[in-house]
Design a protein around this nucleic acid. Sequence first.
DNA 1: GTGAAAGCGCTAACAC
DNA 2: GTGTTAGCGCTTTCAC
Lengths: 351, 351
Amino acid sequence: MVIEVSDSAAAPEAFVLPEGVTPTLDMVAAAAGVSRTTASRVINGSSHVTTAASDAVNAAIDRLHYVPNRAARNLASKRTQLIAVVVPEHTSDFFADPYFGTFIQGAALRLSSTDYTLTLLVASEADPDKTRRFLMGGNVDGALILSHHSGDRDYVRLAKSLPVVFAGKPLVGEEESQYVVDIDNVAAAREATAHLAATGRSTIATITGSLEMSAGRERLEGWHQAIAAAGLEPGPVEEGDFSLESGGAAAERLIASGAPFDALFVASAKMAFTAIGALKRHGLRVPEDVAVTTIDNDFYARNPDMRLTTVDQHTALKGATIVEVLMRLISGETVERMTVVPSELVLGDSA
Amino acid sequence: MVIEVSDSAAAPEAFVLPEGVTPTLDMVAAAAGVSRTTASRVINGSSHVTTAASDAVNAAIDRLHYVPNRAARNLASKRTQLIAVVVPEHTSDFFADPYFGTFIQGAALRLSSTDYTLTLLVASEADPDKTRRFLMGGNVDGALILSHHSGDRDYVRLAKSLPVVFAGKPLVGEEESQYVVDIDNVAAAREATAHLAATGRSTIATITGSLEMSAGRERLEGWHQAIAAAGLEPGPVEEGDFSLESGGAAAERLIASGAPFDALFVASAKMAFTAIGALKRHGLRVPEDVAVTTIDNDFYARNPDMRLTTVDQHTALKGATIVEVLMRLISGETVERMTVVPSELVLGDSA
DNA sequence: GTGAAAGCGCTAACAC
DNA sequence: GTGTTAGCGCTTTCAC
C-alpha cells in the first residue's frame, strides 16, 4: 500500500515509525489524511465522522501502533481517568483478608472494560491530610472507600466535592448524603438464623460483629428478627469484633456462661471459624450439638475441615457493582443512595 | 509581607480563592511574588533558590491549598508517576490468597512515601494485547509483575522497553535480562527440611509445588540438599501445584503409597494446611507421627487449629523491596538482577 | 462533517 | 538565582 510514492506530495515518514518514536495523534492524522480534530473524534467515538474517515484513522492507528497519551488527554479534557480505592493503613490483617483481594478483583475487572484505571490509595494514618489532598487535588475522578472505621467521617465530608462510594455503610449518620453499596445485612443475618430455626433448633445464640460498625449492628438485628419470626426466645449473645480471635473468645465466653444453646449464628465466617474450633475443644459437635451458620463464603467458610452453611455476599460482584455506581455518578447520572448487592444462603456441613 | 497593597499593582485576587477555583502554579507564583519557574523549582525541590523565595512560595502554597496538577506535570515532564502492578486475571483464587493482599500492602505502603501512584492492572487473558499496549503506551513508568505463569514470557519481552521487576522468577530462562525480587527458595526449603532432620526424623517426605514454576523446582532442590546434608535417604515425593486442594490430594497419595515417613516438608503453607488435614483423617498425629514444616507464614500457617513450623518469607517486605528496586531502575541506577529478600524459620507446633 | 486555533497547567532549556 | 520562552499531546470551541 502506498508503495509507489511519487515525488510530489504525501509524507512517507508518516508511514514509517522512525524507530523508537512514539506516534502522536498528529502523525495518525497525517497518515490518515485527515486533521487532528477528526482523528481525535474517531478515537473518542464521536459521531459526525464519515465512515471513510473513521476507517482511515483506525487503519493508521493500527499501522502506527498508536496509543493515546493519557497525560495530554487528561490535561486537555480535565478528566483524570483515575479512580482511587482507599483502604485503611493500619489493620495489617485487612490486606491479608480474602475479602480485600476478592473485592479488588471484582472492582479491577469491571474497570478493565473501561478507560479508567484503578489506583490503590493507602490512607496514611500518620498524615491523613495527605490522602485528602491527593483526593481533593483533582488527581482522581472518584473514589471507592473500602474502610469502615473511625476515619470514615472524613470521607463523608470528602464526598461533597468528589464522587465517592462506600463499600458498606460508614458508621456516621447522614445517610442522605452518601452513596453506599452493600448487601442487606439484616436480611442476610435473618436468613442465616432462620435456617437454624427451620432445622428445628430452639435456642439460637449469636456472636456479633463489632457493634461500632453498622454491619455488626444490622446482623444482630437480623438475628433478632428471625428469632421473633420463628416464635423463639433469643438465645445468649456475645460480642465479637469481626477479628479471627474474637470469634473463638466469644465462643469461650458463651460456653463458660453455662447458658445452653443448640444453634449459633456468627456474624462472620472468620469468627465462625475460630468459634467452631472453640466449640470442638469443649467437646461440642457441629452440627449435632450446635448447628452453626454465618455470613461470608470465603476461605474460612470453605475450609477443608468443614464447609460452613453461610450467606455468600458475592464480594467480587460487590466490587464490580461499586465501580458501576461510581461510574454512573461520575457521568452525572442519578443513582440510588443505597445499592443492595444480592446475597444467598449456601448450605454446608455446619447446619 | 505585601500586606499593604496600594491601588497600583499587585493582585489582591491572588490571595483569595475565588471559591471553587483550583489554584494553579501561576497563582501561587503571583501570590508569592516570584515567577512561575521559581515556584516550580521550589515545588520540585530544586536547589538554586533563595530561602526567602522558597519560603514565600511555600507560604502561598499553604494559603491557597495548592495541589499540582498531575496531568500537566506528567505531560511536561514526560513522566507518569504511575507504576503498574500486573496481576493475572484467571486464578480467581489468586486475589483471595493472603499473599496477594500482603504483597500489595507492602508495595503500596512503600510507594506512599513517594510521588508515585500504584495502579492495579488485571492482565486480561481474553485480550493480552490490551495489557501490553497499556504498559507500552507510555502510561506507566514501570511495572511489577506479580504472576508466575505461562504469559510471563510476554512480560520478559516487555522488560526491554520498560523497567520491569518480577516478584519471583519467571519460568523462562534469560536470567541475564530480567530483574527479580524473591526469597532464596532453595535455602528456605533447605532450612525447613533441615529442621526436620535436626529434630531426629529419619524419613522425610515432601509435597512439591508446581514443578512448572521455579519456586516449585527450587524448593524441591532445597529439600534434596538438606536431606543429603543430613546424610539421609530421600523420602517419598508427591507433586502438588500450590493450590489448596493439591496439598490434601498429594498427602492422600503419599499415605496410599504405603511408603513410611515420619516427617514431611510441604512446599507451601496452603498445601500444608490440607495435607495435615489428610494426615489427621488417617489417624496420623502431627507432629508425633509426622512432623511437618513448610514455607509461608500466612493465614494457613497461623491457623488456630495448629500453628505451623514454617519459613516466613516476609511478603510485605518483598512488596516493599520490589518497589524499591523498580524505583532505582526508573531513576537509572544500576541494580542487581536478583534481589534476595530474607526469610526465616518460625517455630510452630507442627514440628 | 471537518479543520484551525486556542489553550489545559506544567517543566525545561536558555538566557540573563 | 531568576525569569522568559517554548512547548508536552491532546480536547475543544468555533467557524466553515
